[in-house]
Simulated scan of single mutants.
Amino acid sequence: MSEHADASRGELRTVNLGIVFASLSTVGALLVVIDAPTWWQALVLALGVATAAVTVTRWAEGRVPRVPFPALAVTGAVWLFGVLVAETPTASYGFAVVGTVAVHQAHRRRTAAVLGLAGFVAAVLAARLAVAPGEVVDTLLEYVVGSAGIAVVAVVLTSLTQMVSRLVAELEESREREAELAVARERMRFASDLHDIQGHTLHVVKLKTALARRLVRTDTDRAEEELGEIHALVGDTIAQTKALAHAQRRLNLSAELENAKNLFEAAGIRVQVRREGGVQARAGEMLGQVLRETTTNILRHAQAGQVWITLSGTGISIVNDGAQEGPPTGLGGLATLRERVAGEGGELTVERKDGRFLTAASFPRTAAGASPLPHRPAPTRKDDR
């Protein structure tokens, strides 16, 4: 995946982390302020909340081991302190958060992790009953119900982090697959064009060769004529194949525009098309080549989220975001295309700025009487696609 895609995923994860971190910290801080009887006890309880928040953050970043023993030890000690010293059931908050992370990280040993955490919970409640033997019912109601309620809040907030992170990863993987599929479709289209050129020719050559073999002894003039046609047909096919390989085959700009939109949309890229005037017929084929080459480059070398295509009476411009930093690589086709555009009296501009990549081709207006392609207004749908 490209650096831009990694950055996009990082931004989504950062937003997710910010929301969850703020929620965990806010709830934990409220519990500390409400239940801590003294400032020094508040500091101890705050240590449990901070440990939980750091653990969740590192977990979302993939930097938490299978079982976060240090965090479990700290939050477990804070909970024990809250039960035996501060006498507050909400001290279980940090331990519930870290315990949820531990269960998610345990994978195949998840049952053992749950049993271990349940054993520790039972030990804490037993310790509380030991220091207050005459208050069994009140202790069970306060600490079992109160701690369970706080634990549910912690588990829900922590699980949301994992759920959103997984969804972000799945969305990015889906986007990668769509882009790869779009490139594969473009390759299949090229293969189809190549088959159209050579398949028909080879079939005709086969028939004419068989005819020439039958005529070579009975009608040499006709056989020679057939062989001449075979020679001309093969030469024309070679020329068409070279033109296709170098993107010089006659192209229809409108068809190329529709194909580009379909490819971009299949890759999850938004497309906005604007027509500012009718395109000259003389320039239409070359502009189609520019659009095809640029479409392929965007799909292969960028991680664009938006593409803007503008057609005017003298040219075309294609702008995409998601341009990679550093010198452009893998864009040799544009260099070759620049020479062809110049050979037709036009100019090809390639420019990258502020994360956007511009490819524009322009041709001077021909003399009066040049036949322009009909102008069609831009789409009026909301997304302007």
Rank of each mutant, 00 (worst) to 15 (best):
L311I: 06
G235Q: 06
E256P: 04
E258V: 07
G277N: 06
G235A: 12
V273K: 03
L233N: 05
Q248L: 10
R250S: 14
T237G: 14
N252W: 11
A255P: 03
S254M: 01
A243P: 02
T296G: 11
A260L: 08
G228C: 11
A247K: 02
G228Y: 05
G288W: 01
R300D: 12
Q240G: 05
Q272K: 12
A255S: 13
L227C: 06
R300I: 11
E276D: 14
E226F: 04
Q303D: 15
A267P: 03
H246I: 09
S312R: 06
I298F: 13
V273M: 07
N297F: 05
A304W: 01
I238S: 02
R292T: 12
W308S: 06
G268K: 11
E226H: 00
A266F: 08
R250V: 08
L251S: 09
R282E: 13
I309D: 10
L227H: 06
Q303E: 15
A255H: 09
N297T: 15
T296K: 12
R250K: 01
V290P: 01
L291A: 07
L244E: 11
T237Q: 07
S312V: 02
T295I: 07
N297H: 10
L311H: 01
N252P: 02
E224I: 03
T295Q: 14
I238L: 14
G235Y: 08
E293M: 09
A267V: 04
I238G: 04
H246N: 13
A302C: 11
T241F: 12
E293N: 07
L233H: 04
M286E: 15
I298A: 11
Q272A: 14
L233A: 11
T295M: 15
K261T: 15
A232L: 08
V307N: 03
Q306P: 04
R274C: 08
W308R: 02
G305P: 00
V290E: 06
G284M: 04
A302D: 13
A267I: 01
N259W: 07
L263R: 12
T237R: 04
Q289M: 05
E293H: 01
T237K: 02
A255G: 10
S254W: 05
S312N: 08
N297G: 10
A232G: 04
K261M: 15
A245F: 06
E293D: 09
G235C: 09
Q303S: 14
A281C: 03
H301W: 08
K261P: 09
V279A: 07
A260H: 00
L227Y: 12
G277S: 10
A232P: 00
V307G: 02
R292Y: 10
T241K: 03
T296V: 13
L257N: 09
A283R: 00
A260P: 06
N262F: 11
S254G: 14
S254T: 03
E256K: 00
K261C: 15
I309Q: 05
R292M: 13
N262M: 14
M286R: 07
T295H: 13
V273Y: 06
R270N: 12
A239V: 04
G305L: 08
A239M: 09
R275Y: 08
I309K: 01
E229C: 04
L257I: 11
E265A: 14
A239F: 03
A260C: 12
A302P: 01
F264Y: 14
A304H: 05
A267L: 08
R275V: 00
L287C: 11
I309M: 12
E256R: 00
G235H: 11
T295A: 15
A243I: 03
E226D: 11
M286W: 02
